[in-house]
Design a protein around this nucleic acid. Structure first.
Lengths: 242, 242
DNA sequence: ACAAAAGTGTTGACTGTACACCCATGA
DNA sequence: TCATGGGTGTACAGTCAACACTTTTGT
C-alpha cells in the first residue's frame, strides 16, 4: 500500500525530467521501463505537492530517481496540449495496468485522477553519470541509461519532451558553463571536447577548442593522467568552483 | 453576472502575458489597472479551460486584451513558487476587492478558488501597437501601454515575470526573425534599428546594422518615404512573408 | 547653396579555423 | 628510436565596428 494521496498534489499538473549523463563519448538519458505496458518506457516524472515549489518538486523527483541532491536542474518547456494524455494511445494500457497491480496500491479514484489530462513541465538535469545510482520510481520496473539517439519506445509525448530538452541543452551549453556538471570532478580536455561534440553532434578541432575553453579561465590544470599508453600523458583539469 | 465557472478550468494553473509593443523608440508592455486595489496593476492573464491547450488559452487571453488574432506568442517560463500568491502582500486586498464587487460577479467559492496558490505560465507576445485596441479584462479598470522601464506598481510577482519575459525576448530576437512582429507592415531601416536598440538597450552603428539586416534577405525594399523634411528620404521596407 | 539626415565605402582590429609542427610517453 | 597521441604556434580568411564620405531632400 502506498501513502500517495491525490489531495496532497496539484491536479492536472506534472513534471517530467530529462536527466542527461555522459559516458563513452555518448550523451545519455535516464529512462524507466513501466511495470505495466509492453516494453513501454518513460521519463522520470511526478506530481507537485500543494505545499512545495515546482522547482522543489523537480528536485525531489530527481533525487528519487538518482539518489542525488544539489543537481543542475532547469525547466525548459511546458507541454500543454489538451490531448497529450487523453488521446494517448497508451492511456488505456496504463489505466488497466494500474488497476491490475497486485498490491492494489491505487484505488480507482486515484487512477482516474492519474489518467486525466495533465499539463507537463519539462525539466532537464545534468549529472555525473558515475555518481548516479538509478532507482525506478513508483511505476518503474527498471531504469537505465540510454543513448540519446537510441531511445526505447517512450510513452505519451516523452520523445518530444526529450527532443525539446536536448534543444534547450544545446542552447545553454554555449551560454553558461554548465557542461562540467556532466563530467567527473577531474577530466581531460579531450573529454570536454567529446562532451561538446556529443551534445552538438558535430566535431570540433582540438587546438581551437582547447584555446577557447582555457580562455574562459574556469579550469584549473592539475597533474597529468598517466594511463600506461605509449603517448604523451594528457593534463587533468578541474572546474574552478568560483 | 458572469458565466465564469471554476469547474471549467484547470485549478491552480494560470497564464500571464507580457505583451510587447513598440512606439516612439520605446519598448512598451500592456498593463491593466485592477478594479480593486489602490493603483495596483497587473499583466493580462487568465485560466486554462480543461478542454483547451495551454497555447490556445494564451491566444484567447491575448485576443481578449488586444482584439487581435494570429499574434506571435511564445511561452518563456513557469513561475512555480509555492508562495507566489499565498504570501503575496496583495492577496487580502484582492480578496476583499472581489467580494465587494457591486455586481456580485463571483461567489465566495469562486473567490477562494482564485485566491489559492497558482502556478503561472509566462507568455510573451509581439504585436503591432497600431493594430491593438486594448480592452481591460474581467478584473481590469483600465489598460495601458507603459514603457518597459517605467512600469506601474505590479501585483504579485508580475515585475519578475516582465523581466524574465524581456530576457527571453532579447535572446530570441537575435536568433529568430521575430522583431518585425512589433513593427507596422512597412517601416524604415531606422525604425528597425531603433527597435533593436530599444530591446537591447544599447546603440548600434547604422551602416553595419543595415548591412547585416539586408544580408539576411528577409526584407523587400519598397518606395521611399517622403516626410517633407529637408533631407534624403529613407526607403520603406516590408518583411518578406516567406 | 545650405542644413539635415540617408546611405555607402574603406580601413583596421578581432575572431575562428586549417594546417603544420613539436613534445612526452612507453615499448 | 619509433609509433602514438597530446599540445602549441602560425597564417589565412571571414566578421565586426569606427570613421569618413557621398547622396538626396526641402528651404
Amino acid at each position: 500500500m502506498s501513502t500517495f494521496n491525490i489531495d496532497d498534489y496539484i491536479s492536472q499538473l506534472s513534471i517530467d525530467c530529462v536527466i542527461f549523463g555522459f559516458k563513452d563519448k555518448e550523451l545519455k538519458v535516464l529512462v524507466s521501463e513501466l511495470t505495466y505496458g509492453d516494453n513501454l518506457w518513460s521519463l522520470p516524472g511526478g506530481y507537485i505537492l500543494k505545499t512545495e515549489s515546482v522547482d522543489a518538486a523537480a528536485a525531489r523527483i530527481l533525487k528519487r530517481s538518482t539518489g542525488l541532491d544539489n543537481i543542475y536542474l532547469e525547466q525548459f518547456r511546458v507541454f500543454g496540449d489538451e490531448n497529450r494524455i487523453l488521446q494517448s494511445k497508451y492511456k488505456e494500457n496504463i489505466k488497466q495496468g494500474l488497476l491490475q497491480l497486485n498490491d492494489k496500491r491505487f484505488d480507482e479514484k486515484t487512477i482516474a485522477w492519474m489518467a486525466n489530462r495533465f499539463v507537463c513541465i519539462g525539466y532537464y538535469a545534468l549529472v555525473d553519470i558515475n555518481k548516479v545510482n538509478p532507482k525506478p520510481g513508483e511505476f518503474g520496473a527498471s531504469i537505465e541509461w540510454r543513448n540519446i539517439d537510441d531511445l526505447p519506445n517512450l510513452t505519451h509525448d516523452h520523445d518530444t519532451i526529450v527532443s525539446y530538452g536536448l534543444k534547450a541543452l544545446r542552447q545553454i551549453l554555449d551560454e553558461k558553463l554548465i557542461g562540467f556538471n556532466l563530467l567527473p570532478k577531474t577530466f581531460t580536455m579531450k573529454e570536454v571536447k567529446e562532451l561538446y561534440e556529443a551534445v552538438h553532434d558535430t566535431s570540433f578541432p582540438m587546438n581551437n577548442f582547447q584555446k577557447k575553453i582555457l580562455e574562459l579561465n574556469v579550469l584549473e590544470r592539475l597533474g597529468k593522467k598517466f594511463t600506461g599508453a605509449q603517448n604523451r600523458a594528457p593534463f587533468l583539469y578541474r572546474f574552478k568552483e568560483n
